[in-house]
Simulated scan of single mutants.
Amino acid sequence: MKISPRLVIFFAACLLAACANAPRPDAPSVATDVSTTLTERGWEMVWNDEFDGNTLDRSKWAPEVSCWGGGNQERQCYLDRDENVIVENGYLHLRAFADDVSGPSVHMEHPDYPGETVSRNYASGKVRTRDLAYWTFGRIEGRMKLPGGQGAWPAFWMMPQFDVHGGWPLSGEIDIMEAVNLGAACFDCDAGTVENRSSGALHFGKKPPENEYVTKRRPLTAQPGQDGLPRDQFHSYAVEWGEGRIDWFVDGERFYSVSSDDWYTDAVDKSDDPNAPFNEDFYVMLNFAVGGAWPERDNETGLDPEILPSEFVIDYVRVYQCAQDPETGRACMMDD
C-alpha cells in the first residue's frame, strides 16, 4: 500500500481497530462476525472514517465541485456546501434535491478547469480521497444506506490517482457498489417486480467508444435487526483487491470475482504487465448522482423528480492491508 504524505500513517491502527470495528446500535449482527473473520484472515485496518463529530474531515475527504455530468449525462451539480455534504450523528449524508445552481462545466482534473459556468436544476454531494489517500491492493469496505427511486444513482468506487496508463478507461475504474432506480419497476429481476439490486464492476480496455467492462448485480437481502425493506436498510459493500484478482462482497458474502485474465489496458502489452491497469494507486469516492444515461434508460426510464429530496447515508469507510503480504494482498483473500 502507498499513501500520500499528507495523510497521517496509521501505525496505531491495531489500537483503534477494536473501537472502529464495533458496529453501531442499528448494525446487523453479521458486522461483528465479518470483522472477526477479517482479523483471522490477516486484514489489518490502515485507514478509516467513522464520520463521528459534526464536520467532514478534510484531511481525509475533499468534496468535488463540478457540473460536467460525469460523462454520463447526469443532471446534478456537485457542490461543496453544508446542504449537500453533511456529517451528523455518526453518518455522512450526501443529499440531493432540486435547486437552480451553477458551477464548473468540466471535471476537476481537466486542464481547463473550471471552464465555463453551466446551470443545472439539481444539487448533490460527492467526496473523494484523491491526493489525500490512495492505495494499491487491500480491502476497501463501506456500510451505507442507499437512496431509491427512478433516477437515483449512488456509487462507492475507485479511480486511479495518477492515470499511469492514460485517461479513462486506460488506467482503469473499480466500482465497489452502484445501484440505480431502487424500488422502481423491474422487468428483468430474478425475483419480484421491483428493482432491488446493487452491482460491482470494472472498466478498462481501449479508449471510448471501444472501452470495455465486466459487471455483476446482486439482489439485496433483509438484514436482521433492521426495519424496512432490504433496499431501505444499511448494507456493507466491499472489494478485496489483490495482485491479479478482485472480489466483491455484500454483507460479508462474496458474490463476484474477476481475475487479470478478464481485464487489460490498451496502453500496455499484456505479456509485459499482465495485471495492468489494476496494480497502481487508486483513491476512493462516494457520490449521489441524479439521473444519467444508465438509470434513465432502465426500469421505468427517465428521472422522477418526486424522488427528491433524498440522501445517500454512509456509516463508515474502512481500508485494510494484508499485513503478511502487503506487496500482493493475495495471502489474505479468500480461497478461489
Rank of each mutant, 00 (worst) to 15 (best):
F278R: 02
S119C: 01
I86G: 03
A20C: 07
N89H: 12
V284I: 15
E311P: 01
W47H: 11
A185Q: 09
Y213P: 00
A201V: 04
P28I: 06
E195M: 14
M177C: 12
F10A: 15
S199K: 05
S105M: 01
G115C: 07
H235V: 07
H235S: 11
D273M: 10
L16T: 04
D325A: 12
A185V: 06
A184Q: 02
K60E: 05
T215V: 14
H110F: 11
G244I: 08
F11P: 04
F137D: 04
E311M: 08
L182G: 02
A331D: 08
I176P: 05
R231T: 01
N72K: 10
F156R: 01
D232M: 02
E300C: 12
G69N: 02
G244M: 08
R75V: 00
H107N: 15
N181T: 06
P104K: 02
G166F: 11
P277K: 10
E280R: 13
V101P: 04
A62Q: 09
F137I: 08
E327I: 07
V8D: 09
V30W: 14
F156G: 00
A13T: 05
V250H: 04
Q150W: 13
G200T: 05
R297S: 15
G302W: 09
Y134L: 05
R24M: 10
N181W: 06
S198F: 11
L308I: 07
L229I: 00
G166K: 05
A179F: 01
A289T: 04
E141C: 13
Q324E: 15
G244D: 07
P23W: 10
R231M: 02
D99S: 15
D336P: 08
D190K: 07
V164H: 11
F204Q: 02
E280Q: 15
G151N: 03
F156T: 04
I307H: 05
F288I: 00
T32W: 12
S198Y: 09
D100G: 11
V85Y: 03
S29E: 10
V268H: 01
V106N: 00
S105N: 02
A222V: 09
L286F: 14
S102A: 15
E243H: 09
M1Q: 09
F312I: 02
L38Y: 12
A191H: 10
F187S: 07
P295H: 13
R120H: 14
Q226N: 08
